[in-house]
Design a protein around this nucleic acid. Sequence first.
DNA 1: AGCAATAGTTACTTCTATGTAAGTATCTGA
DNA 2: TCAGATACTTACATAGAAGTAACTATTGCT
Lengths: 124, 124
Amino acid sequence: MDRTTIEDAVFPNCPIRNILAKLCDKWSLLVIYTLNKAGMETVRFKELQREIPDISQKMLTVTLRTLEDDGYVTRTVYPEVPPRVEYALTERTRSLLPHINALIGWALENKDAIIKDRRRANKK
Amino acid sequence: MDRTTIEDAVFPNCPIRNILAKLCDKWSLLVIYTLNKAGMETVRFKELQREIPDISQKMLTVTLRTLEDDGYVTRTVYPEVPPRVEYALTERTRSLLPHINALIGWALENKDAIIKDRRRANKK
DNA sequence: AGCAATAGTTACTTCTATGTAAGTATCTGA
DNA sequence: TCAGATACTTACATAGAAGTAACTATTGCT
């Protein structure tokens, strides 16, 4: 266990450090976004891998486990062979999604300008 | 130079990878949040350090430089001795802030429940 | 008998974000 | 003359996040 990323010695109640920074690893937002896609009420492990082709098996497992720990996704194991495990978003995550989608919308609107600025800065 | 964090070979247009993941390092959101605090139109380097006591000098410099590159903050140098450098948010960031604040609000509302879940998961 | 399928785990390596400590430049005031 | 203030830069060290490859278990299918 012990998947703590952000220590919070100075501001133990800081919501950014406690909650948001944990969502901001390389894969969490993408996994949540993918789980939410239309027509995907529950999603199997393999389907997630197909949707996010460049995630490694290990990182998909780790990311899902962390999201599960914090109550963002549920994990349901069906005792079949070969195994079937289905992942779904919780109510908590559904209330978070509008905010994430707003952010994604903002990012889409501002993407070109930001990338332009970034390129200009890197030339210097 | 070369401060690229998120490679995007598979989805080069993914707004999450391009834009959001860059904001999600250890300090960027906190710096933006601090720059935005009431009564702080422009802020000096030293003031930022006082507001975020556990950031190292180097990481504050690096974070500010990255934010500047992507057009989130402006940096104004006054040719004085001792040097004075003032940082301020750009219009782009002001349009982003409502979304960030919404996220922070959501995190505050859900903090207790999430931490409870997290603790329960780590006990297992 | 042996391979495919699913959902992992494990050991090991690599990368990169972050931290630490010291050095730089310039002028002011004691 | 020398400490103090500000805003850095640089070199080096390290912790933790992510990647790779191999291994596991079970059953049906051929």
